[in-house]
C-alpha cells in the first residue's frame, strides 16, 4: 500500500512498510474510536433547558472503566507494535547479512561522494571508482556501506530503500541494503547541515549486472602519469 505512494527498492523496505502500516492501523483505530466517543458524549450530554450539569470526580468504578479498559487495550496494541519494531530493527540495523560488496558513502557540505569497488570487488584498491552525486549499485547484490562525514552532521536518507542513517564526523557507521529493483531514484541529506543543506542531493542508480559491468568498464580509473608525478 505504501509502495503506491513511495517506490520501494530494497529487500527490507516491505518490512518497514509493514511496520508503518501496523502502527498506522492500530493508532488510527484508537484515534477514530476515541474521537467518535468524544463527539458522541458531547452530543449526548449537551446543554438542555432545566437540566443542571453534574460534577463527577471519576472515582466510581462505572466511571473509571472508561479509562482503564481502553488503557489496557492500548497497552496490548503497544505490545504488537514493540514486537514488530524490535523484529524490524534487528533485521535492518543490528543484523548485517554477509556482504557481497562494500561501498563507501561520504557526506560533506554540500555533496555526497561515493567510492565503489572496481572489478576486483574490494575497496581501497587501485581500481576503485569514485563518484560525486551518483551511487551506482547492482540489483540483487547485498551491500554493506561505510558512512562517514568530512565536516558536520549529515544524514543519508534513501526513501526507496526505507533507509535513514546519520553521518557523524570522525566515525565510520556501517549498515547494509540489498537493491531489489532497477531504476534511478533521488535522495537528499536529511540533517540540517548548513546553508546548502536543501540542495545536497544525489541519485542512486540500480543496474542489472550487465549494465553495472558496462558502467564499471566505462569509469575504470585511468592512471595519469602526469598526475601521478605530482602526487
Amino acid at each position: 500500500m505504501i509502495e503506491r505512494l513511495v517506490a520501494s527498492a530494497s529487500s527490507y523496505a516491505p518490512d518497514i512498510d509493514g511496520l508503518i502500516l501496523l502502527i498506522a492501523v492500530l493508532v488510527g483505530f484508537w484515534f477514530l474510536l476515541t474521537e467518535a466517543v468524544f463527539f458522541w458524549l458531547i452530543l449526548r450530554f449537551r446543554a438542555r433547558d432545566g437540566q443542571r450539569a453534574e460534577y463527577i470526580t471519576g472515582e466510581e468504578k462505572s466511571q473509571k472503566r472508561w479509562i482503564t479498559i481502553p488503557h489496557l487495550l492500548v497497552l496490548v496494541c503497544d505490545i504488537f507494535i514493540v514486537v514488530g519494531a524490535v523484529r524490524v530493527w534487528y533485521e535492518v540495523k543490528q543484523h548485517l547479512p554477509e556482504a557481497q560488496q562494500t561501498v563507501r558513502v561520504i557526506g560533506q557540505q554540500w555533496a555526497w561522494s561515493f567510492v565503489h569497488p572496481g572489478p576486483d570487488g574490494r575497496l581501497d584498491t587501485a581500481d576503485d571508482i569514485k563518484t560525486v552525486d551518483e551511487l551506482h549499485l547492482q540489483k540483487d547484490v547485498t551491500y554493506h556501506f561505510e558512512l562517514t562525514s568530512r565536516d558536520v552532521l549529515h544524514s543519508l536518507s534513501i526513501p526507496v530503500f526505507r533507509l535513514r542513517q546519520d553521518a557523524i564526523p570522525g566515525r565510520v557507521i556501517r549498515g547494509w541494503f540489498r537493491p531489489t529493483k532497477t531504476g534511478v531514484h533521488d535522495f537528499q541529506c536529511a540533517e540540517i547541515c548548513g546553508i546548502g543543506h536543501g540542495i545536497m542531493a544525489a541519485r542512486v542508480i540500480i543496474e542489472t549486472p550487465d549494465e553495472h559491468a558496462a558502467w564499471m568498464a566505462e569509469h575504470a580509473p585511468t592512471t595519469s602519469l602526469a598526475a601521478a608525478a605530482v602526487r
Binding site: W110, A111, K130, V132, G196, I199, A201
Partner: peptide
C-alpha cells in the same frame, strides 16, 4: 566542483545551482 577530491568545489556547486 564535481571531482571527488575538490572539497571546496563541491561546496560551491550546489550554490551555483540556485
Amino acid at each position: 566542483g564535481r571531482h571527488f577530491d575538490d572539497i571546496a568545489g563541491m561546496r560551491m556547486r550546489p550554490m551555483s545551482l540556485t
